[in-house]
Design a protein around this nucleic acid. Sequence first.
DNA 1: GTGTTTACCGAACATTCGGTCAGTTGACAA
DNA 2: TTGTCAACTGACCGAATGTTCGGTAAACAC
Lengths: 199, 199
Amino acid sequence: MAVQPRQGRRGHDPESVLAIAVDVFNERGYDGTSMEDLARALGVTKSAIYHHVAGKEQLLARALDRALDGLSELVADERADSGPAIGRLEWVVRESVRILVDRLPYVTLLLRVRGNSATERRALERRRAFDAFVSHLVKEAAAEGAIRPDLDPALVTRLLFGAVNSITEWYRPARGGSADDLADTLVRMTFDGLRAQDA
Amino acid sequence: MAVQPRQGRRGHDPESVLAIAVDVFNERGYDGTSMEDLARALGVTKSAIYHHVAGKEQLLARALDRALDGLSELVADERADSGPAIGRLEWVVRESVRILVDRLPYVTLLLRVRGNSATERRALERRRAFDAFVSHLVKEAAAEGAIRPDLDPALVTRLLFGAVNSITEWYRPARGGSADDLADTLVRMTFDGLRAQDA
DNA sequence: GTGTTTACCGAACATTCGGTCAGTTGACAA
DNA sequence: TTGTCAACTGACCGAATGTTCGGTAAACAC
């Protein structure tokens, strides 16, 4: 985990530039962030950034890939592929929360992408693959009778992952509890309801 | 509802400019939208826009106020103020869905604001008032024993309205069902759970 | 010391940005 | 026909944008 000692002047590298840049992107929005803003946050001149990355859009592309690679690994995991669908769905939700917390700044950025450039559209396409995977899983669970029949599966998918994705809007690793506690509460509420049974 | 016949050349007015502008803002993001983009969508020159509104930021301010006024009316409603908290919470959720669908483009814009300008920060402050109102309501319901004691009320608030707010991400009035059907599904799932009871 | 590697600065670039202004066009009323 | 009013155009402004480039400074190896 320790950074290799390296020859030459000490300072930023592509990794530290990306980390700081993503934070600024999330604070001001990608389009609302200028290279000057990034330079200020890095404590460096605008032109120095181009020593580490090809440009603003490459920073975005690298950040989005970090989020999407996490989701791709989830879809590829064998644990998402055997057993009752409702159990797999619960596992996918928990794992999604873990990835979301783990890679919070990158996923936050991903969830705000609207398709303004080729880079953004490519990211949206990869994201759609994940959405389709989850959507199919919910339909399976419904077909197996594990989801209340008065709920439209497509709507359940949307609302369930609406709750999951909202984590990027308010979760802060400092204050908030662990990712597992968060996932517990989320699953309990969405799967079994927030209402007390004896009320 | 019909537009008054008016003297002078026919064309856009502040209202139609706002409606179209908000659509473009939601497609490309506020910061990602140039006045040139708006002009193109309006079928007009850039300078013509300034005949109707003072500038880009005023368009944003007007749009955000439309969303926030709806939420303010909700908070002021007497139906949010009497009876068991859990019932009031359900009413507030249903009403929120109605407002969100009713004023979809305006609320969508509001939920993406990050505080880049004085206008955005003012909107965020008004929105925080609504969040505080809902947060308090959930705590009341928990204190009255109507919410499962193993769920943290603050987290319930976040997740519940995470699901509500996600509506702006995927609901399209054309395809989607009515706002009431949507609210029904949302309340059933979040209050009583998506899991079938006999499973 | 010398050479090499890496990180950086400062000035400049072309383009786009939000916004201004003097004048024109088109629809209505009288 | 003439006057009035709202809607609009086209040329323009200063500032900010993302990016380039030639040169410099600091850390390391030898």
